[in-house]
Design a binder for these strands. Structure first.
Lengths: 234, 234
DNA sequence: CGTCCATTTGATCAGGGTCAAGACGAGTGG
DNA sequence: CCACTCGTCTTGACCCTGATCAAATGGACG
């Protein structure tokens, strides 16, 4: 097996302010893994044996309720850390992580966390920054759910995904992984029916174009107006 | 002014695993403040000059939306840290904190955080644990908002408050600070009207007893059944 | 006693969930 | 290459939860 090279992680915000030598050490302790589409990287409630960095692909993080509902917490893009809640004193994963497409990730055993903390304070500082921004995300989600209508929430969700992983195409911004109506519903606390109706309607207005597990945002600006509730009701 | 004594903070989970001497040092750097009912401890977007520990009273943490809605993020009880989001790389407060009753708090200047981190690693570890549990709280809020009906969410909210600050009385558990229908609505993403109707209904069933800005939970167990959706519809 | 809030309760109604049925498209196996 | 199947998506009809609008009641406090 070819050994891992630090160029894989150099330049990622998680490893900002670390020296080349430190990167070498860190990557020397990592194992790389391929995860097939639809496979779990880790599961909710499971013992948190490792923490991860996604190198390639897209991962959906979900929590399940006792009564069978699934709620999507977030999508992870390449370069992001995953499974780091243990840095906050947990021993089990708070959610499950599923590969949306075939993925490649790095993994470090959890028991190395304290060592990392001592040897690479810049790294843990970055990790905490990540956690901070996720806490803010969670709070904005709460606020959206409390104050916005379904159409605004769906619009916000699409815009967030475009921001995160949008690929510019001739027509607009394609969300670059398989995304079903059901998936969008699980992000926004609604049903696939309502999402389907919304997308149909928006397609009619030229805001988006969507197909089977595929969404392209054509007019982000107008979608944003809708998301912020300053669109004229037509 | 009498100087502050370490007995004020000894025993609090935020200061677990610190020596008496360390506690003395920490408290020596604190300033204590009285905050009148309805006054702000800090405001959203404001420069985060200090972080706080609530000694006495109750604080409501709220975020406002551009269109004037207020969402209550959480209530803080004595012994809890506040305004520590700056530990996660922020420079402004992410929400406002309002004294629900007359309060007493300790405050440390933010610029001491790095010093604290070096001198009292146990303290920052505890702080991160606090943040971790708040992240989880936020996620459960999202899940509740996505999957539960209003009555379940209100029931959950009341139970959480009872857990946090419930005072056992002859009849049940009193939530020990002024709490209006409006406040409950802001915690659960509904309106004061709906909350009022729910409480009236529950009062009829003997689940709660409520008056002006006052709620007592009489039958937590039955309320929990309702919260979890396994109550018989009557 | 009067004013200001918090609360209650009724009436109305719409957003969006639920139920049902069908169309479409992609992959599979013969 | 075609038929079949399964999963995704669409669309209609219906109805329920809970928001909105409106008005009255009741304490608390100056």
């Amino acid at each position: 097996m070819a050994s891992l090279d630090r160029s894989l992680i150099a330049g990622l915000s998680a490893f900002q302010d670390l020296t080349a030598k430190e990167l070498d050490t860190i990557i020397g302790r990592a194992r790389s893994k391929r995860i097939a589409r639809n496979a779990f990287l880790f599961e909710e409630e499971q013992e948190a044996h490792s923490f991860f960095l996604l190198l390639d692909g897209h991962v959906r993080v979900v929590k399940s309720t006792p009564d069978g509902h699934e709620v999507t917490v977030r999508y992870i893009s390449p370069g992001e850390l995953m499974g780091i809640a243990l840095a906050l004193g947990r021993t089990t994963y708070p959610a499950s992580a599923i590969a949306v497409v075939d993925c490649v990730s790095l993994a470090w055993p959890s028991h190395q966390w304290p060592t990392f903390a001592e040897e690479f304070p810049a790294f843990v500082a970055n990790a905490y920054k990540t956690i901070g921004s996720r806490l803010q995300d969670a709070h904005s989600r709460v606020i959206e759910m409390s104050t916005e209508q379904v159409d605004q929430r769906v619009a916000h969700a699409l815009l967030k995904l475009v921001d995160q992983t949008g690929k510019k195409t001739g027509e607009g911004f394609l969300i670059d992984f398989p995304l079903s109506r059901q998936n969008i519903a699980e992000m926004t606390g609604t049903t696939l029916h309502t999402v389907s109706r919304l997308l149909s309607c928006w397609e009619g207005k030229g805001l988006v174009k969507s197909g089977r597990q595929k969404v392209t945002v054509l007019a982000p600006h107008r979608l944003l107006e809708l998301a912020e509730g300053r669109a004229e009701k037509s």
